[in-house]
Simulated scan of single mutants.
Amino acid sequence: MRLDKYLKVSRLIKRRTVAKEACDKGIISINDKVAKSSTVVSVGDIIKIRFGERVTTVKVVEIKEHVLKNDAKEMYEVIA
């Protein structure tokens, strides 16, 4: 699954266009490499998202195409 779609489906970022813009600005990295919005996300990948001074680090646990709002948090595990 594409990174921008994963961020939207998992609800780490609310809109896919916002996720794409964040990737284009270099705010998001996968496994310590700056990622493009088209980067393929796999189970076990570590995603880091920088929101200003705060860095959110999550591990991809599961990949699904469609998820209910309550089940979205099961797609990742917060590390830091």
Rank of each mutant, 00 (worst) to 15 (best):
K64W: 05
R16S: 11
E53N: 15
N70D: 12
S10K: 13
N70M: 14
K14C: 04
E62L: 10
E65Y: 11
V67A: 00
E21S: 14
K64Q: 08
R15D: 02
E21W: 07
T17C: 05
K8P: 00
T57D: 06
N31K: 09
D71G: 02
C23K: 02
R54M: 13
E77S: 09
I46L: 11
K20M: 12
I13G: 05
C23F: 01
E65A: 14
K69F: 10
E62Q: 14
K73I: 07
K20Q: 15
H66Y: 11
T56I: 15
K14G: 10
E53K: 15
E74N: 13
I63F: 05
R54N: 14
T57A: 08
K48A: 04
I13Q: 02
T17M: 10
K20H: 05
T17R: 10
S38A: 08
Y76R: 07
K73H: 10
K69W: 05
V78H: 00
D71E: 14
K48N: 12
K14L: 06
V9A: 00
L7K: 04
R50G: 01
I30H: 04
K33N: 06
D32C: 02
L12V: 00
A22V: 02
K73R: 11
V43D: 13
K59I: 10
K14M: 06
I30E: 00
E65R: 13
V61M: 15
D24E: 09
L7T: 05
Y76V: 07
L68E: 11
G44T: 10
H66V: 08
V78R: 12
L68M: 12
K8S: 02
M75L: 15
K48T: 10
Y76Q: 09
I30L: 06
L12H: 02
I27H: 03
E65P: 03
T39G: 05
Y76L: 14
E21K: 14
D71A: 09
K8H: 12
Y76W: 09
